[in-house]
Write a protein that binds this DNA or RNA. Sequence first.
DNA 1: AAATTGTTTGCAAACGTTTGCATAAACTTC
DNA 2: GAAGTTTATGCAAACGTTTGCAAACAATTT
Lengths: 334, 334
Amino acid sequence: MNDKKLKLVDLAKLAGVSTSTVSRALNDNPLIKLETRQKLQRLAKKHNFSLNTAASRLRTQKTNVIAVMINLDGDTEQSINDPFLLKLVGEINLALNKHGLELLLSNSFMASDDWVNYFINSRRADGLIVVGQGKSQANIEAAANAGVPLVVWGDPKTESNYPIVGSDNYLGGRLATERLLEHGAKNVLFLGDPAHAEIGERYRGYLDAVSKAKATPNVLSIDITSKAAYQGINQLLVDKGLCFDGIMACSDMVALGAMKALKERYISIPNDVGLIGFDDISMADISHPSLSTIKQNTQRASIILVEKLLAQLAGQKVNSQVVEIEMINRQSSK
Amino acid sequence: MNDKKLKLVDLAKLAGVSTSTVSRALNDNPLIKLETRQKLQRLAKKHNFSLNTAASRLRTQKTNVIAVMINLDGDTEQSINDPFLLKLVGEINLALNKHGLELLLSNSFMASDDWVNYFINSRRADGLIVVGQGKSQANIEAAANAGVPLVVWGDPKTESNYPIVGSDNYLGGRLATERLLEHGAKNVLFLGDPAHAEIGERYRGYLDAVSKAKATPNVLSIDITSKAAYQGINQLLVDKGLCFDGIMACSDMVALGAMKALKERYISIPNDVGLIGFDDISMADISHPSLSTIKQNTQRASIILVEKLLAQLAGQKVNSQVVEIEMINRQSSK
DNA sequence: AAATTGTTTGCAAACGTTTGCATAAACTTC
DNA sequence: GAAGTTTATGCAAACGTTTGCAAACAATTT
């Protein structure tokens, strides 16, 4: 095995040309004659040559790396166990790859609070995709103000000086609630923490639907986890009995936690209680009864997130954008 | 806002010392007087200075980046939607962070087949963590032979020239099957594709348990997804009726897919059919009935994976290692 | 006070690319 | 065939760190 790492200059020597020529050839620069280009590219492939990214990043001041950070509230367990967020990260990765960009997976532990410094000044990444607004947008705002090219997955209706891509949470919350009401529910419970930006919007949609139907709203504010939902619903049933006949859950995981609590008490879904979630994670389809939900189009959102980030890197000013949602009717809310 | 990116030399000028001194001070090199070091570190913080990683990587030939790649079989849907793999990635990230390392999320799309070149020669990363052995280990073997520092999450009993960290899949498969048999099952079905390395081991454990009980084995080979499991079990029930009274599923997602199929036909779990999964994803606890499973200790595995990789980077020869599993008894297999 | 030792800092040469500018070669055009 | 134009390549200077070695300074010993 040829252990010696080849450099541009070695390749140049082998081909009898200058390093400039090789460099240009490998970057497909039309300054170099097509024939020469192809010859050099073949040579590079043959010798298993690959450019030293450190050197080229230093020289070009570009990394072709995008940092993705899952923006967690310190006090929630949602985090790394939420299938929805992880799926989103996976799809962002694919979207980045299509543009030849790489994904640096980050978190607040590494980046602490000064994102400008950590990501941009240090030239770790060219830009930043923040997944989740969390409860506080201070960090994001500071980074955006300091000139970090960034886009955020969150609620696009939030007032902000940075572009946010996300679903129409208000509409989703309203549609789901309306559906429950239309099918006879009188007391729809909102299950989730409205302090969270995206969930707050869903809650607003819920409120509007409820008040339009002249029903009374009812919130159970919990952490965004299935366990919290399970415990919360259990407790509520113990305390007040079955005081609702519909649940608009702020996420599928939360809905599934609620579902378990209901099933354990032989409360029929959807007959006694209609249940609708949000996200359309793969478990929604596989639960029993299958879970009605508002599907967020993560694939499309990922593509848009990346496009907007690239536009920003190209110096354009970009705006927030809503990604269409879809109501998926399954068994839990017939 | 101070837009001009500070360099080492600027900071040096500000402090009235040489760049060497600043560089050493920021790296906490004891050659520099403690007092000077602290002064310079304060100065750096005050001016929001941070080192250009591209430059320092070029100079030191180290990146402090580890590439993590989810090794998918092209023909399976398991991939990015499998909560277990994603959770593992999340925990590997945390484990890396503790050592000051960053995670580059990669996949076969970017890295194609020549991992040496893509990751190491190009100095994108110092080492590689491969999540999943897949059905073919050719790529991994080639990379290991070519000297890529790498560790693999998979079945540690597989013969290999690279270290594998993973659960005792044989034992897990055996324990779960034994439990089903002990509780009266006569016909335990193995649900999963034994061609997959880890699953093959679980299958061996299953086989041994079954033959020890003088029962007859029965496999339904399917893709590692809940959907495939749902369809597979449905089809089997249509074709042959309820020809089993226990299912050893190769993963929790698969088990949950099977669970849905059973519940839809009012087949009682665990009375008619006992069901045990593998992984202990968060849904296992929240399903109804809750899913008995073999818990894989991903957190510990992640820590070990990183330690082994670091040892390898330090030039040590490291071996495969088994991470303990735990049988979690829940309702689905009483 | 000179010589020796130990401590702290600075000089300058790398690391391996990319790219503006200069040059050389090959064609046009008058 | 000289001058201009186009095309293809090479020269050499960056990019911003780190680090071996030398130097300066301080402390100790002779």
